[in-house]
Design a protein around this nucleic acid. Sequence first.
DNA 1: GTAGATTCTCAACCTAGCTTTAGGTCTAGA
DNA 2: TCTAGACCTAAAGCTAGGTTGAGAATCTAC
Lengths: 156, 156
Amino acid sequence: MYTIGQISRMFSLPVSTIRYYDKMGLLPGLERTSGTRRFGDDQIEALRVIECLKRSGLELRDIKRFMDWCQEGPSTYDDRLELFREQRRKVDEQIAELERTRAMIDWKCWYYGQACEWGSEEFAVDLPDCLPADGRRLWDAAHVDLTASMAETTPA
Amino acid sequence: MYTIGQISRMFSLPVSTIRYYDKMGLLPGLERTSGTRRFGDDQIEALRVIECLKRSGLELRDIKRFMDWCQEGPSTYDDRLELFREQRRKVDEQIAELERTRAMIDWKCWYYGQACEWGSEEFAVDLPDCLPADGRRLWDAAHVDLTASMAETTPA
DNA sequence: GTAGATTCTCAACCTAGCTTTAGGTCTAGA
DNA sequence: TCTAGACCTAAAGCTAGGTTGAGAATCTAC
């Protein structure tokens, strides 16, 4: 069993945040000895799940709902399964979006790399046709959705 | 040139949000005809960059700083390059973190899949040793950092 | 047995990033 | 001319997810 300070160091979370989670009902089964919280394996697992679900984009109120399901027993197994399956889809979508974001950033890195080298942005008048092959590849990767949405407006 | 309503549809952003960005100074060079905002290519590009930098985790005040750099000219090329390089690192870190999150979710999907099938969690007494090979693989992937931090505490 | 660290509660406060509201202007069509 | 729709500003309001502060109890070491 651990105190709140130990858990705070274990998870690199402020003590106030852990108390806040407790007050929200996110740490079911938490025990106390003369007022002081005592954290066991179940609460440590709960905090791991909180971190995971938070990063996957779930709000605290929905994490609370999940914790309530856990207290309710076997009748909620399929709700819990569906929740994690849904969060898996959301995480995949987040990763895909970050990869699109990264493509744009890579293009901008190349762009400002050139700008630094030449001391001006004149190398980029008339985008994207003025670009050399490597710059053009980055521009294309950063603008796929743009070209896709342009294609929508032209006849098949 | 586009009106705010057209831009709103183009980016799927509420009109109020676009006005808010303008008020923050995130759309330099924006013109007006008798009070009404007129958006050109520069502002469209600015909005694309705002989306990109926001997704990479930058706060609006730092995006504002970037827009100020763009107004200042060639003397800030290296600041801008360094900004995008830094955001690239952060996006990579975010993706890595989401992949760890996904490993945890995959484990939980397997876990609750089993729980649904068996109608209880008894298959999981004494983790992780009680697990069959496929479950064990998912458990391991979800707990790499845990086992890593355990390893730290044992002599080399 | 006393000092210093850690814990507790409860309520107030904070920040980012919008959104809403109230009241007003501008422009195009019937 | 009248009306509908899109635009404008300024200020207040909202939400999520905490953080901070005051005041008090408790635990730990010397």
